[in-house]
Design a protein around this nucleic acid. Structure first.
Length: 482
RNA sequence: GCUCCGGUAGUGUAGUCCGGUCAAUCAUUCCGGCCUUUCGAGCCGAAGACUCGGGUUCGAAUCCCGGCCGGAGCACCA
């Protein structure tokens, strides 16, 4: 598959590509996370390698993991046709991190620092070693053991990796590798077992090596990680994976949002849940009837660039429409309905086709002497106006309030010669329908046959595509796109 | 303040490493037309870009220097 968008990877002779997607499960996957899932898994698929999902859940406090989210990630990856070959949870590997920490301390490449944050910054900015930097490995090991034993309070001590305190880039000078957190971890398997937690650069450095990662794609914001982690790799004699970076991705339709911000908004009832149609979570998009193939294509064609991008959902919708249009059956949904009485009507059954171009059969509608039409369509009609009820017949308006009309035949010639507007309608014998859309809620009535489309994406003519979400008590549909 | 990265049409993207074939690709969007008993799709057509200034060169989107704009790191977040 010569997918445009993704540049070839630099793969050594005989090398098996191993790549990972490493989220913190502190909320469900969003469109942003999806890039990491799709691009990594796509590369792995192309090169016949291995795709690993690793939960970087080593912060029980500030970015506290959400227990349900671990499964959500696996679910959503699978849905995106990116089922991981292996699932790794960082909080299961604490002993491994501790072992390497001890080793680096013994080698004299790490030390326990008791500086207060601000004080250390002063030393660092002045390119001066702090008083603890010169401690012997023996002393550092003692402190390390005390840290592990819980003898120090939070923020009292931190383990730093020795880099080059005079490095011209301040971001690289002696960075933190472990800190003390006494909040228990949400995973019951872990709980309060540990009080010393690794920071991202340490945890990631060890994991990427242990898992045999060959290539890493990560955000531009983590560009310094390679240089920082490079010190650890040098000390331990490891080779660093090949790295690529991408810029931030932002959708026009969704302003700035943070997982913690969304979480709060949901708890306060501002959104109905993580799958509220207004949210950019995968769960919401799935519920709305966005197809995973469309998301994959969208992400792959965007490629991997270091430029920050801000793109429109329209592009994703266009991809999705190509998939959904040929398979979505057509139905009438009348929002903001107005009753229309047809004075000379004779009961009949009409059978419009389910799709304008595909052979998908027909639907069947019983029509009596009343119908419903959209207020938008008849709000400004006058007595004597003529209209075409699509797939039914032509009418002449005989009264505006209440709205009444008279059937004046079924001739398409008349529709053309008299330039009648063609509007859709719903029969008197109908089903109530509610559509939940990012831009609001729409209620009205529609053809009864819609209840047969549970879980399918249909097109409500002149309205848009929708996924039928439930049919228990009337129909509830989630808006996909136009 | 120090350090790093980026800047091609409205939005994304190809091309930049190894200057010419680039009066610059593709998608989306927008605007026209055709078709159509909805909308959408489809078909046809059109519009629209190399951040700026120098330099190197016969020749620069591509190389060099500087400016401007944008993003990021310098956290006991990931």
């Amino acid at each position: 598959m010569p997918d445009k968008g993704l540049k070839p990877l630099d793969v050594a002779e005989g090398e098996t590509v191993v790549m990972r997607f490493a989220p913190n499960p502190n909320g469900p996957p969003t469109l942003g996370s999806t890039r990491g899932i799709v691009v990594n898994s796509e590369y792995v698929r192309r090169y016949g390698g291995k795709f690993i999902i690793r939960f970087d859940d080593t912060d029980p406090q500030t970015k506290r993991p959400m227990l349900e989210a671990y499964d959500w990630y696996i679910e959503d990856c699978t849905w995106l046709d990116a089922k991981p070959d292996k699932v790794v949870i960082a909080s299961d590997h604490m002993e491994v991190y501790y072992d390497y920490a001890r080793k680096l301390i013994e080698m004299g490449h790490a030390y326990v620092c008791f500086c207060e944050g601000g004080d250390f910054k002063k030393f660092k900015d002045a390119k001066e070693p702090c008083p603890h930097r010169g401690q012997s490995p023996v002393v550092n090991l003692e402190h390390w053991d005390k840290m592990l034993a819980g003898d120090y309070e939070e923020k009292a001590a931190v383990v730093r990796i020795k880099t080059d305190i005079k490095h011209k880039d301040p971001a690289l000078r002696d960075y933190g590798a472990f800190r003390i957190v006494k909040t228990p971890h949400p995973r019951p398997e872990v709980g309060d077992k540990y009080v010393v937690w690794p920071l991202l650069d340490f945890e990631g450095a060890i994991e990427d090596h242990e898992l045999g990662m060959t290539h890493i794609i990560r955000g531009k914001d983590l560009m310094d990680s390679e240089k920082r982690q490079g010190y650890i790799y040098n000390y331990l004699g490891w080779d660093y994976p090949k790295t690529t970076h991408w810029g931030r991705i932002k959708m026009h339709e969704f302003g700035k949002f943070s997982t913690s911000g969304l979480r709060q908004a949901i708890e306060e009832g501002e959104y109905s849940g993580w799958d509220d149609p207004r949210l950019p979570t995968l769960r919401a998009l799935r519920r709305r009837g966005i197809r995973p193939e469309a998301i994959r294509k969208f992400m792959i064609e965007m490629g991997v660039g270091e430029t920050d991008v801000s793109i429109s959902m329209d592009t994703l919708y266009a991809e999705n429409r190509k998939i959904v249009d040929p398979i979505a059956n057509r139905y009438f949904f009348v929002w903001d309905p107005v009753e229309l009485e047809i004075e000379n009507a004779e009961a009949c059954v009409v059978e419009p086709s389910l799709h304008p171009t595909e052979e998908r059969g027909r639907r069947s509608i019983n029509v009596g002497s009343k119908a419903f039409v959209c207020n938008d369509d008849v709000g400004s009609v006058k007595e004597g106006d003529v209209l075409r009820l699509k797939d039914l017949y032509n009418i002449e308006v005989t009264s505006v309030s209440p709205l009444k009309g008279r059937c004046i035949g079924n001739s398409m010639e008349d529709v053309k010669s008299r330039k009648m507007r063609i509007i859709h309608w719903a029969p008197e014998d109908n089903v109530s329908i509610k559509v939940l859309a990012p831009h609001g809620e729409f209620t009205g009535v529609g053809e009864k046959q819609v209840v047969e489309e549970l879980n399918n994406v249909v097109q409500f003519e002149r309205f848009g595509f929708c996924r039928i979400d439930s049919v228990d008590d009337g129909v509830v549909a989630y808006f996909t796109h136009k």
